[in-house]
Design a protein around this nucleic acid. Structure first.
Length: 423
DNA sequence: TATAATT
């Protein structure tokens, strides 16, 4: 049926509205197709914009690759189609380099010239923003690990490019795990969390992953209703978080959200939330996923990367972060809302009332992000914390009475010490 | 200075 040495191809940059049947004609031109599978998200079924393709004949794969790879751009895409052997086919990424501190004017060709003396370059890509401006870094893939290593040895730190702030960086590109960690940290930064911190999902990781994917999908599906691009970005971040969760980088069983072992900060700002209008409980232990920076409750890590990440847990500040997935609506289509709680001292925590029904976490976050370190949201009220009382006061001044649609926000300090608080 | 995506 297919050659014993057939090559499975990875196809990238596929418009998300194209399914197998739409793609078949394009690829059949190069030979009989053995298998063609568009990649879908396992929970949401969302088209991932890429596919795997195996031809019956090895030769067909080679022909398709040379004819199509980076040779044409499918409608609606802003980058050319990718047709190359899937990662599963050959070696991993031990021959791919990340090149940092390039000058912004340096093109792919400039980078190639810099690296070509060290070996056969299979791929060379300068990273660019949507406007086409270089981000000052590139990926260069050699045909062998040795060639890549030779380039590192000769080029890393050796020269400073015009316009770059320090000398050229040449190193092996991140592995998938490293990328995930990097994204996680970026996300934390975008959420306004700048302290070192660990984010841990609970024992129901796969479940919360599914929920987050669903939530992200919903947000993506309603993109037209976003107030601005920030909301779309937040949706993408949730996708990333969900991906992080499922990648198994954290595997700690959740800390029970009741009992004496619960760190005080974990309950703060969460037990005191006002009752919800839909009658659903604010939290449901089985669905509660805690995030906390306590080293004693760290995952048992065996992987060096995980260990490196675990290192940042040893930070001395007040504990901090909770992501909660709480049932809010009985409707299966909107089962959960992501809650992000940051525990802060009194005088730093605000309740936001009269949020429009359609306000999502992203919208609330976007509204307060310039001022706040975190936010929480349910259907009609939100919760925002600041790292100091004056920022909280500034937020009240800036946002109380802020009109959204027919309603005005009510922004006030969270009720001081609550009898419900467990300490 | 970290990509768009890898069952």
């Amino acid at each position: 049926m297919k050659d014993h040495d057939a090559i499975k191809l990875f196809i990238g940059q596929i418009p998300r509205n194209l399914e197998e049947k739409d793609l078949k004609p394009l690829f059949e031109e190069f030979g009989k197709i053995y298998e063609l599978t568009v990649l879908k998200d396992r929970f949401t079924g969302m088209h991932k914009g890429c596919a795997f393709l195996t031809y019956c004949a090895r030769e067909s794969a080679l022909k398709a690759q040379s004819a199509l790879h980076e040779q044409k751009t499918l409608p609606g895409m802003n980058r050319p189609i990718q047709v190359k052997p899937a990662d599963s086919e050959g070696r991993g990424e031990d021959r791919k380099l990340f090149v940092g501190m390039l000058g912004k004017q340096q093109s792919e060709d400039d980078v190639r010239r810099l690296f070509e003396t060290f070996g056969q370059i299979e791929e060379c890509t300068v990273l660019r923003g949507p406007d086409g401006a270089s981000k000052g870094c590139a990926f260069v893939k050699f045909s062998s690990h040795g060639e890549a290593q030779a380039a590192i040895n000769s080029l890393h730190g050796g020269q400073t490019m015009p316009g770059a702030s320090s000398s050229l960086v040449v190193k092996f590109a991140d592995t998938d795990k490293e990328r995930t960690l990097r994204r996680m940290h970026q996300m934390a930064g975008q959420l306004g969390i700048f302290s070192p911190m660990t984010i841990q999902f609970g024992a129901y990781g796969a479940y919360s992953h599914a929920m987050m994917q669903q939530q992200a999908a919903l947000m993506a599906a309603t993109q037209g209703s976003y107030l601005n691009p920030m909301a779309a970005i937040a949706a993408a971040q949730m996708q990333q978080m969900a991906a992080f969760n499922v990648n198994g980088l954290v595997a700690t069983p959740m800390t029970p959200s009741s009992g004496t072992s619960t760190p005080p900060g974990i309950m703060n700002g969460f037990s005191a939330l006002p009752p919800q209008s839909n009658g659903q409980p604010t939290s449901e232990p089985i669905y509660t996923n805690g995030i906390h920076p306590y080293p004693a409750q760290s995952p048992t890590v065996t992987d060096p990367l995980q260990q490196a990440y675990a290192g940042v847990q040893h930070y001395a500040g007040e504990p901090s972060l909770l992501y909660l997935l709480s049932p809010l609506s009985p409707s299966p289509s909107v089962p959960f809302t992501l809650h992000l709680c940051l525990s802060r001292p009194e005088g730093c925590n605000l309740f936001i009332y009269h949020l429009p029904q359609e306000f999502g976490d992203a919208e609330l976050m976007q509204m307060f992000l310039p001022l706040a370190t975190a936010s929480v949201l349910t259907n009609c009220y939100g919760f925002v914390s600041f790292d100091n009382p004056s920022s909280a006061q500034a937020a009240i001044q800036a946002m109380n009475g802020f009109q959204i649609g027919m309603k005005r926000l009510k922004v006030q300090l969270k009720r001081p010490k609550d009898a419900n608080r467990p300490y």
